[in-house]
């Protein structure tokens, strides 16, 4: 465990807490893409299958439980909770995310570490996570103005990926056979998706203006 990875995990945890805070405090999920949240549930469930079979550390197991339960809790709120579900932008959140699921699964069948159930699921979760933010970014561009918490949510999600890339660079130089080419490629693609959001986020922060994404 290196500092970059810990920073990445903590930043990732912050993104989940921001969403839970926003939903709990405002009883609203406007501006949040349910499709992205559903994709994250699939990512965590597919990736943490080894929760009970492959003990790495207490930290690792606790964080897995936190990510799975919180992502399911967010989807539950947005689908079931009587107050929150009414504020969901159903008409705006129209990204056909099942194509992302099918594409990631197809890619995982072709490119994986070992052609085993667990490795295919792991590769699937890595590819799916790389594109899971797309419905959210499309929703933000559609709804034009971005409320602070949602903007911070996407910003921290991007930051967590940047920390993970730094973590891989660090591990590449400090460990012998550290070959995570699947994570490398998917991670770079994922972080690139945030690039333009970061640009507009920085502009809005510099001009101290409301974050406006070009439609």
């Amino acid at each position: 465990m290196n500092a970059f990875r810990l920073a990445g995990d903590m930043t990732h945890l912050i993104t989940v807490l921001i969403l839970l805070l926003k939903i709990y405090a405002t009883k609203s999920c406007s501006g949040i893409s349910l499709k992205t949240q559903e994709l994250y549930v699939m990512v965590f469930v597919a990736r943490y299958l080894d929760l009970f079979t492959n003990f790495i550390s207490v930290y690792n197991s606790v964080m897995k439980v936190v990510f799975v339960t919180s992502s399911i809790a967010i989807v539950w709120c947005m689908r079931i909770h009587p107050l929150v579900r009414r504020t969901y932008d159903k008409e705006q959140d129209t990204f056909r995310h099942y194509f992302l699921v099918a594409g990631s699964f197809g890619l995982a069948l072709l490119f994986n570490e070992n052609f085993t159930f667990r490795e295919v699921c792991w590769a699937f979760s890595i590819y799916l996570e790389a594109v899971a933010i797309l419905p959210q970014l499309v929703l933000l561009q559609r709804s034009g103005n971005v409320d602070n918490l949602t903007g911070q949510y996407v910003f921290f999600l991007g930051a967590y990926r940047v920390f993970y890339i730094l973590n891989w660079i660090y591990r590449y130089f400090t460990e012998k056979h550290f070959s995570r080419w699947i994570s490398w490629i998917a991670g770079l693609v994922q972080t690139a998706l945030y690039a333009d959001f970061f640009y507009y986020y920085f502009i809005s922060w510099k001009n101290n203006s409301k974050l406006q994404l070009p439609a």
Binding site: R47, D50, I56, N60, M63, F67, N167, S183
Partner: peptide, 10 residues
């Protein structure tokens, strides 16, 4: 053979 491929990251 190569040690079991461990996914030790989240």
């Amino acid at each position: 053979d190569e040690e079991e491929y461990k996914h030790d990251e989240l």
